[in-house]
Amino acid sequence: MSEHARLRELLPLYVLGALEGSDECDVVCAHLATGCPECAVELAEHARVAAAMPEVLAPIAPRATVRAALEKKLADAPKVVAMHTPAIRRAETRLSWVWVALPTAAAAAAIIAAVNLNEQLRWEKNRHWEDAKEITDLSVEMAALQKEIAKNDALANALATGDAQVIALGPAAAGQTGTGHVIWNKKDRTWTLLASGMKPLDKDQVYELWFIKNGADPRSAIRFEPDAKGVVRQTIAVPADMPQIDLAAVTLEPKKNDDPKPSSTLVIAGKTTG
């Protein structure tokens, strides 16, 4: 029997919570955390069957005071989202930016975030089916985080081995805010823009990144909006006909604008060095 088949066999026990406290529970939980679609479906099926068991119980009407008490609790209770979601979002934000200045610290942060997520998954493991959906969601978020870590690793490696060139970006005019870097990964042939402190945009505005080679027209690389914290991360493929850039700049543009040239509102910019 394959390892996967063995794990699938344990799902009925897992869904009932009967594996709690055992090594097998950890193994099943870890497997589910990989996002295995086959096991996720089977887990949901077993959970549905288990949840049908109380159908055979004779109903017992609650006392009238219970409904009144519930009504009061509903009036008093804040309507909130699941409590662990913000924690994960925080971890993602940390990973998406901090490592830029300090790849080593970022790697540590990535590990901490992954460990935090893993702990979260471990905490979830015995909540059975009610939380199986949440575990699946966490798995998806963890997979996304792992991809993010892999991207960060690739960039950190490129920086460490000299396969990457960094363009530092700073405010290009008085009153502008934001700093960042364009990391030109020559090995993967990608540009990655990482910026923070970007001002929020009006509804009809968008930021646009331009690459400029001396003596040539600026070329639009990507239009983007920062997240709520003013942080940006965008990766784009290097066009075959643009093997070298001398300057990178971010401008503020109207959303409805087909002009192939940048506007005069320069936000952040920087030159290639070295």
């Binding site: 949901a44 959970a47 549905r48 288990a50 949840a51 049908a52 109380p54 159908e55 509903l74 209770a77 309507k79 909130v80 989202v81 699941a82 909540r127 059975h128 089916w129 009610e130 939380d131 959906k133 949440e134």
Partner: peptide, 25 residues
């Protein structure tokens, strides 16, 4: 149930099954 109503996934199970799981836990 009220607080997590938005996360309910009707494709996974009916309301009663979901509610039973919450009450059991």
């Amino acid at each position: 149930i009220w607080q997590e109503a938005a996360s309910y996934d009707a494709n996974r199970a009916g309301f009663r099954a979901w509610a039973c799981t919450i009450v059991r836990n």
